[in-house]
Simulated scan of single mutants.
Amino acid sequence: MDHYCVLGNPVAHSKSPAIHARFSELTGQAMVYSRQLAPLDGFAATLRAWIAGGGRGCNVTVPFKFEAFNLAGTASERAKLAQAANTLKFSGDRQLEADNTDGVGLVNDIQVNAGVSLAGRDILLLGAGGAAAGVLGPLLAARPRRLVVANRTHGKAVELVARHAAHPSLQQLLQKTELLAQAPQGLEGDFDVIINATASSLGGGEVPVDARVLKPGALAYDMMYGAAAQGFASWARSHGAVPRDGLGMLVEQAAESFLFWRGVRPPSTQVLQEMRKALA
């Protein structure tokens, strides 16, 4: 059996073991997937111990995605663009290969599972941390008309936007997409899609933006799922938006990680449907 895990802090709540167990069952892949709690100041040591024990790869969750990228020897283009990694693979010589599957997971869930095209739309991305960094590039690749990054610490949003605006691989896309950084307070205009990549839902805090930015019928997407996403969903619904939690993103990014590790694409739509029923 090949061994994989999700590394993070906290990690006990993670649904990733159940998702990958189902993926391996449906594809006939011989693998085991577990949770590994890493101390906040001990991610590198925990990772080294996992590799030394024979681990073949891992997913990385908060707050270690930037550190995971910096520890890797090689990285995919999407991980380089994000400068963050949520997926690591260990080659035969124990070299770390990094990928970031968050963005493609998010875009697949919105466009395929939710049936909402992002091309030509106005998108608001709330947050400028590791979660936002991982999805900004793939969101741009979906060719929206306008993409605004808003963060409580405005400087972080400016830095994230500037780094993407200067990246050579995005120059053609940015000829047709307006990419801006703004503060949550005083946001101008309204949006077709709002994506919450902040930790506000995880901490039970208020939605970090005024409801006036929502177009009627807008998609309001929270990267959290389950009970943590209920506050954001209620806020969206009460202001005429269509809420969606991040369970589909979790399953779709897991499918991309599974492909990166095993070379096989699992049936993500089926597993998402099964998980929706189980959570209901």
Rank of each mutant, 00 (worst) to 15 (best):
V60C: 04
T198F: 14
F232K: 05
K277Y: 08
L106V: 09
Y225E: 00
A211Y: 10
Q253H: 02
P266F: 02
P39H: 09
L139S: 10
A52V: 09
L219H: 08
A68K: 01
Q270I: 14
A157T: 01
D2H: 10
A49F: 04
A157G: 14
A18R: 10
L96C: 03
D109Y: 05
S34N: 11
V112T: 11
L40A: 11
V107R: 12
G231V: 04
D210Q: 14
L40T: 09
S91Y: 03
S257F: 05
Y4C: 05
V107T: 13
H3Y: 11
G127H: 10
N59I: 06
L180Q: 10
N196E: 08
A165Q: 00
L250Y: 00
Q175D: 12
P39V: 09
V116F: 14
A132Q: 11
E25S: 13
S234V: 12
M224D: 01
G203Q: 12
G246L: 00
D122W: 08
S76N: 10
S76E: 12
Q36H: 11
L180M: 09
L160H: 04
V32N: 12
F69K: 03
T269R: 14
R48V: 09
A181I: 02
T101P: 12
R78Y: 08
F191G: 06
S238Y: 03
R163W: 00
P267A: 01
N108S: 15
D210H: 13
P216W: 09
T198K: 14
L179N: 02
A241S: 05
K156S: 13
M223A: 05
R265T: 04
R145K: 15
Q171V: 00
S24W: 08
T101E: 12
V207W: 06
V264E: 01
A30F: 05
A119C: 13
T87W: 09
E252K: 03
L272P: 06
A228T: 04
R146I: 00
D122M: 08
G120F: 03
K156F: 07
Q95R: 13
V148N: 00
V213R: 07
L140T: 05
P10F: 04
I195A: 06
A75T: 07
M275D: 03
V135W: 12
I195T: 03
L147D: 01
G129H: 11
V193Q: 05
